[in-house]
Amino acid sequence: MVEIVVPDLGEDVEKAKISFWHYEEGDKIEKNSDIVELTTDKATFNVPAPETGIITELYFEEGDEVEVGEVIALIDDENEELELSEDEEEEDTNF
């Protein structure tokens, strides 16, 4: 399981708002695809997924305030179905 954590967003920035989820629970996400948009008083950031996997949990709603360091989502990067579907994709590309 991979945790999506609110990253450091600058000195004395303790909170951010979840302004947009790019995916829903159950969706497959590729590594480096943006999973969530976070907004601070100063700027807006897209946080990418560190690994490919299935999103199993989105712990907050859009509009919620979250703290720097807080876990806001979970990605299952060890899902057997995911591995299977990747294998299938690979096979498909061989034809």
């Binding site: 700027a43 897209n46 990418p48």
Partner: peptide, 21 residues
């Protein structure tokens, strides 16, 4: 998606990607 979330979003050209590597 809440209306509040939509109204506070910045223009798309002002969204910065986090390069946490």
């Amino acid at each position: 998606m809440s209306l509040n979330a939509v109204s506070t979003r910045l223009p798309h050209w002002l969204i910065k990607k986090i390069y946490r590597n």
